[in-house]
């Protein structure tokens, strides 16, 4: 039925990604313990974005699936960014 070989993620690579996610969780907790207010919000969100990227790429298998899935996810995230951007432009210029 399926002639194309399906990529199988190895247990080791999944484990490495998990360890990476744990380390970044640790860093974001430690950084927000020191109160830098605006700076720590930025860093926490940056780390969350990297973690989200890892989950999408490796756990959700986007790296190895058909490119169309990657393109769709990228466009949806772009659309969300635009929605946030336009809302804030509206609020700031009121």
């Amino acid at each position: 039925m399926e002639d194309k070989k399906h990529h199988i993620s190895s247990f080791n690579s999944l484990l490495m990604v998990l360890i990476g996610l744990f380390i970044m969780t640790g860093i974001s907790v430690m950084i927000t313990e020191i109160h830098f207010s605006t700076f720590s919000v930025g860093v926490a969100l940056l780390l969350a974005s990297i973690k989200g990227y890892l989950v999408l790429t490796y756990f959700m298998h986007l790296k190895y699936d058909e490119p169309i899935f990657r393109i769709m996810v990228f466009l949806i995230l772009l659309l969300f960014a635009i929605v946030i951007g336009i809302t804030f432009i509206d609020y700031l210029l009121r």
């Binding site: 907790v29 720590s40 969350a48 989200g52 989950v55």
Partner: peptide, 10 residues
């Protein structure tokens, strides 16, 4: 992943 920093950390 996004709820956690926004609710608990920041």
């Amino acid at each position: 992943i996004f709820l956690f920093p926004l609710m608990y950390l920041v």
